[in-house]
Computed example of a mutant assay.
Amino acid sequence: MELNVSTATQGGHVVVTAIGELDLYTAPRLQTALAGLLRTDVDRVVVDLSGVEFCDSTGMNVLLSAMKRIKERGGTFELVAPRPAVRRILQVTGLDTVFTVLDTLPAN
């Protein structure tokens, strides 16, 4: 399955929307999008996972790396609306306590 990644500025932050499966083969697409944002002066990145049906450890590592890089410069990195399968991975790995996970996209 494919992974479609898009970015949009919304209010005071950038929303990265991923749709499809986030795995060893598709994770580079998300990594490229996030790396591009991290080269700018954006200080808040919101990753909309509502369209992600599956995520493996490679996908989680891409998210962790991006979160680490933005937090190192004082920014905010949030995950939004993970589906039950992805939420379960976050819980089993303990990453639900590492990431800020929101149920809906922030209004501002």
Rank of each mutant, 00 (worst) to 15 (best):
1 M>C: 13
1 M>G: 14
2 E>C: 03
3 L>D: 04
4 N>T: 15
6 S>L: 10
8 A>C: 04
8 A>R: 10
9 T>R: 10
9 T>P: 00
10 Q>T: 15
10 Q>L: 15
11 G>R: 09
13 H>T: 07
13 H>C: 13
16 V>M: 00
17 T>L: 11
17 T>I: 11
19 I>H: 05
19 I>K: 08
21 E>F: 00
22 L>Q: 06
23 D>P: 03
26 T>F: 01
26 T>E: 00
27 A>H: 02
27 A>Q: 04
29 R>E: 10
29 R>F: 04
29 R>L: 09
30 L>A: 05
30 L>Q: 02
30 L>N: 01
31 Q>I: 04
31 Q>P: 03
32 T>Q: 10
33 A>C: 07
33 A>Q: 06
33 A>L: 02
34 L>K: 09
35 A>C: 10
38 L>E: 05
40 T>K: 14
41 D>V: 01
42 V>G: 07
44 R>D: 07
45 V>T: 09
46 V>E: 00
50 S>D: 11
54 F>D: 11
54 F>M: 12
54 F>Y: 15
55 C>H: 04
55 C>R: 02
61 N>M: 11
61 N>H: 12
61 N>E: 12
66 A>D: 04
69 R>Q: 10
69 R>N: 06
69 R>M: 05
71 K>E: 08
73 R>S: 04
73 R>E: 02
74 G>T: 01
74 G>F: 00
74 G>D: 00
75 G>R: 04
76 T>V: 13
80 V>C: 15
81 A>G: 13
82 P>S: 07
83 R>F: 03
84 P>W: 06
84 P>Y: 07
84 P>N: 08
84 P>C: 09
87 R>Y: 02
88 R>I: 00
90 L>N: 10
90 L>M: 15
94 G>I: 10
94 G>N: 09
95 L>D: 09
97 T>L: 11
98 V>G: 03
98 V>P: 03
98 V>Q: 07
99 F>K: 12
102 L>Q: 03
103 D>E: 15
105 L>H: 12
105 L>Y: 12
107 A>K: 14
